[in-house]
């Protein structure tokens, strides 16, 4: 079955990113397809490569990136939510005159249309977070 995942909470905020990760990982291991993972609202903070948790804590960002690498997942960060929270890629840095980028290379920034498309193309949309 084809799933789309939406995450509305940041990493380490409550538990949504962890729940979504475990659901996604389990679904993939069971042979399901994940059409896209869409990070919305504070969920965009799951996509910054600058995250540095203590060494004995789980690395939420890298964990998503590693799962994305293994299964070639489309990890999409909402552009409007990202701009508000300072999540920046090369294009956004140039467009908004910023001197740095922080998006993890395994993620990409795109628009809300990507969420709508994921909802249409998938059989189930799973929403995690606030």
């Amino acid at each position: 079955m084809k799933f789309a995942i939406q995450i509305n909470e940041g990493p380490y905020q409550h538990q949504a990113s962890d729940s979504a990760y475990l659901f996604t990982k389990t679904a993939l291991e069971k042979g399901h397809e994940i059409f896209r993972v869409f990070f919305y609202h504070d969920g965009v903070n799951n996509g910054t490569r600058l995250t540095t948790p203590p060494q004995d804590d789980r690395h939420v960002v890298n964990r998503w990136a590693e799962l994305g690498e293994k299964y070639d997942l489309d990890l999409v960060v909402c552009v409007a939510a990202a701009q508000r929270r300072g999540i920046v890629d090369d294009g956004e840095a140039e467009r908004n005159g910023k001197d740095a980028t922080n998006i993890h290379p395994r993620f990409r920034i795109s628009g809300l249309g990507q969420l709508v498309e994921a909802a249409i193309q998938s059989e189930r949309l799973m929403v995690f977070g606030d």
Binding site: M1, F3, N8, L22, F23, T26, A27, K30, H32, R124, L125, M126, V127, F128, G129, D130
Partner: peptide
Amino acid sequence: DYEAFVDLAAEHSKVVAWV
């Protein structure tokens, strides 16, 4: 467990998240 969570999502025609 999580496996059953995935199964439940697949078995039902819609999933409604109350957040």
